[in-house]
Amino acid sequence: MAEKTDFEPNIVAFLCNWCSYAGADLAGTSRIHYPPNVRVIRVMCSGRVNPLFVMNALQQGADGVLISGCHPGDCHYMQGNYYARRRFNLMRNFLEYLGVEPERVRMSWVSASEGAKWKEVIEEVVNGVKAVGPMDMFKRRQLNW
């Protein structure tokens, strides 16, 4: 799906404070170039991300959502990412069932030292969302009269 398109998706990324946020930061300080489509929201732990955050992001204009946390075993709070893993596996399947392409809801493990992986993840997410186009299923419409 290398279709050329002008569509620049909005990606909302929920990054855990201890690993993924630091990883994204490292990518920045290492001058690693990655697509500028991501809006980062820092949370203390991927386990803090409520599935309703994903729903609301998609409602409010995000074309894709990424949740990223520490690798299993590395969670600052010991197990937060394990809970997140269960939650978003189900959420992703469920949204797919409603017709939301799985490319729009992604999850990754990015550690504080993985600036390069962060770039790869973002590229994959952005390309994936580009391929499926803008999210307009249950996006809030323009204000109705």
């Binding site: 299993p72 075993g73 197990q79 394990y82 809970y83 893993r85 269960r86 939650r87 978003f88 596996n89 992703r92 799985p102 992604r106 999850m107 990754s108 493990w109 790869e120 993840v121 994959e124 997410v125």
Partner: peptide, 16 residues
């Protein structure tokens, strides 16, 4: 309850 527990080897093939 399902979502207040986990297994270390839960499926994660969907994770990048």
């Amino acid at each position: 309850p399902l979502l207040s527990t986990f297994k270390v080897d839960d499926r994660e093939d969907f994770i990048m």
